[in-house]
């Protein structure tokens, strides 16, 4: 996979690490800093299924714990521990499994502060490896951020680079609210530059991954890299594409969306999730409602059709937007 550069303007000593090591470094550094942080999940003591927690159980005995395959208990226990002032990190091994702990995520974690009248902070992070993984098929490939945009009280983050991942996870671990941290599985091997020193990236702040004049492509997670590749391809034709990486979906950085679309006058919203009632649908509606008079063309949406993610490679690749689809969509708007 290609490597990602540091954001412009960041000047520190850097190292090149993978996205999965960005997760591990964020956990390790924050656990070192804050003794209330602990990690629970399935197979996290050895390394986790995605090798994101390697060595942590040795470095922090008793604070990295394997659980039974019990997602309700994992998230419910995280809620209970957070109520007593701890900072749990719960790993849901595969994003599709959020269906097995929806009550704990939506009715407990998301609502506790509100329904108890603001008595408590609920500083917990639920890490959710998500999205396509090569040929993982219908029950191991979905990405369900939109469900949690609809459920009040949950922050939803989905970084696209090692730099953002490490900085945003550290920010999540220093916050006071429940954060659902979506890690796109296809990004774990991605390399990128990360500062050697401590830093955070705030949640709720979008990032222009590539500046452009003609069209804004709005995206997050692994799709960002397809959008960047599309922008490179279109540049050869003299089309200047701005890639706006939203990075968080709750809070959604609507001022950044407004600034970008007002400058380019065209918007393409791209996502890997199914099209109906998706995050992209909400973002497109926001643009239509608030930036309509700046638009020179209809908003374009690229998303998966509402079918389960298929197994076989050609089918799997056919249902999610690819770089060529983004190129085509941009051209149609000009």
């Amino acid at each position: 996979m290609m490597a990602t550069p540091m954001p412009a303007g960041v000047q520190m000593e850097t190292r090149r690490i993978t996205f999965r090591d960005a997760v591990r470094e964020a956990l390790q550094e924050e656990m070192q800093r804050d003794p209330t942080i602990f990690v629970i999940g399935e197979c996290v003591e050895l390394r986790s299924a995605w090798r994101t927690t390697r060595d942590l159980s040795v470095l922090f005995p008793g604070r990295v714990r394997d659980t039974p395959i019990s997602e309700s208990a994992i998230v419910g226990a995280a809620v209970g521990a957070a109520m007593l002032g701890m900072r749990p990190v719960a790993e849901i091994m595969v994003g599709d499994f959020v269906t097995t702990c929806m009550d704990e995520l939506v009715n407990q974690a998301g609502k506790a502060r509100y329904m108890f009248g603001g008595q408590i902070d609920l500083p917990l992070v639920v890490r959710i490896p998500t999205g396509l993984a090569k040929n993982a098929a219908a029950q191991h490939s979905q990405t369900l951020e939109s469900w949690f945009m609809h459920a009040p009280g949950l922050l939803v983050a989905a970084p696209s680079t090692p730099y953002d991942c490490k900085g945003m996870l550290k920010a999540a671990l220093r916050g006071r609210d429940p954060v659902l941290f979506f890690e796109y599985k296809m990004l774990y091997a991605l390399q990128g530059d990360v500062p050697a020193d401590d830093y955070t990236v705030p949640l709720g702040v979008a990032d222009v991954k590539r500046a452009g004049r003609d069209v804004t492509v709005l995206c997050w997670g692994s799709v960002v890299h397809k959008a960047l590749a599309a922008a490179v391809a279109l540049e050869a034709d003299g089309v200047s594409v701005e890639v706006l990486d939203l990075r968080s979906l709750v809070p959604l950085d609507t001022p950044a969306i407004q600034r970008s679309v007002e400058r380019t006058h065209r918007a393409v919203v791209v996502e890997e999730a199914c099209r109906p009632a998706s995050a992209g649908a909400d973002i497109a509606a926001w643009i239509a409602e608030h930036v309509f008079y700046s638009l020179d063309a209809p908003i374009k949406r690229l998303a998966a059709p509402p079918v389960p993610k298929p197994f076989s490679t050609p089918l799997e690749q056919a249902v999610v937007p690819q770089t060529d689809d983004i190129v085509r969509a941009v051209r149609e708007l000009l």
Partner: peptide, 13 residues
């Protein structure tokens, strides 16, 4: 499960 988590917090503390 919330009670279990509270128990875990107590054990960790």
């Amino acid at each position: 499960p919330i009670a279990t988590g509270a128990g875990l917090a107590i054990q960790l503390k």
